[in-house]
Simulated assay, not measured.
Amino acid sequence: MVYAIVELHDVSPFHREEVYSALEFLEKLGVEKFSLLLIPNFRGEYPINRYASFVSFVEKTQQEIILHGYTHTGKKRLKDILYTYGEGEFGESTLGETYDKLERAMDLVEAMQLNINVFVPPAWIGNPWLDDVLYSFGFLGVGYRGRVRNLQSGEDISSPALTFSNRYGLSYVSIKTIPLLFALFKKHPVLRLALHTADFRDRRKIALWRLILSQIKKERRLISYGELLSKSRPSPSFQGVQPAGGLV
């Protein structure tokens, strides 16, 4: 059996129109299972507790909600230039900054009574402390660019993520390369299809996602992050152990 996770990145009140378009697109395509990557306070200006109707709308989809950073903004770093430009929020965060951002994010999540236990950092960029801090907050897993890590067992599940760039120049390149990468990973056991809200401003990307997802539905079983993590059992050393915040 081969699997796929369909995920919509950058879900925020700021992108509400694109979110609506994306969900309508997925519904018309018959994609019945997908994950919504929620930004609690996009750019520090759109805290979800001020947009109760939007959060309610997201909840009513009855799809898995994933925490996607805190503000989704970070320092511009030359080494990340191919992946992002100022959105690698956790890339250079210290231990204290990492904890503070996650605490603020979880305060908003809890204020809206959302049940979230999986994290995907913006641009899939983490830092040396992120896994431990997430574990201390009770998260079960974290998704990086090429893998999903089970924080209870420490197991890495290989899982390439296909996505388009939405930056000038690289956007065109990604449109040309995504079909090639899709063919390259055709037999990979677990594949992630990372749609971004910005994709729904580009008809070319919408058309390609339609083709790719139509094929995915025929060839793979759609699952959530939670289902993927449940397939990897905790190791004996972790069984019965609750997050205790060892580092923080």
Rank of each mutant, 00 (worst) to 15 (best):
V2N: 12
Y3C: 04
Y3G: 01
A4S: 14
V6N: 10
V6S: 09
H9N: 15
F14C: 05
E17F: 13
E18P: 02
E27H: 12
K28I: 12
K28T: 06
G30I: 09
V31F: 02
S35P: 03
L38P: 05
L38T: 08
I39P: 01
F42D: 10
R43V: 08
P47C: 05
I48E: 06
Y51L: 09
F54M: 11
F54W: 08
S56W: 11
T61C: 07
T61F: 06
Q63E: 07
I66K: 00
L67C: 03
Y70V: 07
Y70G: 03
T73S: 05
G74T: 02
K76C: 06
L78F: 13
L78H: 11
K79E: 14
L82S: 13
Y83S: 15
G86Q: 09
E87A: 08
E87V: 04
G88R: 09
F90K: 06
T94V: 10
T94K: 07
G96Q: 10
G96E: 13
E97W: 05
T98I: 04
Y99S: 09
D100Q: 15
A105S: 07
A111K: 14
P121E: 00
P121L: 00
P122Q: 14
G126Q: 11
G126E: 12
N127S: 07
P128R: 14
L130R: 01
D132V: 04
Y135K: 02
S136P: 03
F137A: 00
L140E: 13
V142R: 01
G143T: 02
G146P: 06
R149P: 01
Q152L: 14
S153C: 06
E155Y: 14
S158C: 15
A161Q: 00
S165D: 04
R167G: 11
Y172E: 14
I175Q: 13
T177W: 13
L181Y: 15
P189R: 10
L193Q: 02
L193I: 09
A194S: 11
T197Q: 14
T197F: 14
F200M: 08
K205S: 10
K205T: 11
A207V: 05
R210F: 11
I212A: 02
Q215K: 09
K217E: 06
E219F: 06
R220T: 10
I223Y: 01
Y225A: 04
E227K: 01
K231C: 02
S232Q: 13
P234A: 01
P234S: 02
P236F: 14
S237H: 12
Q239I: 15
G240I: 01
P243Q: 05
G245S: 10
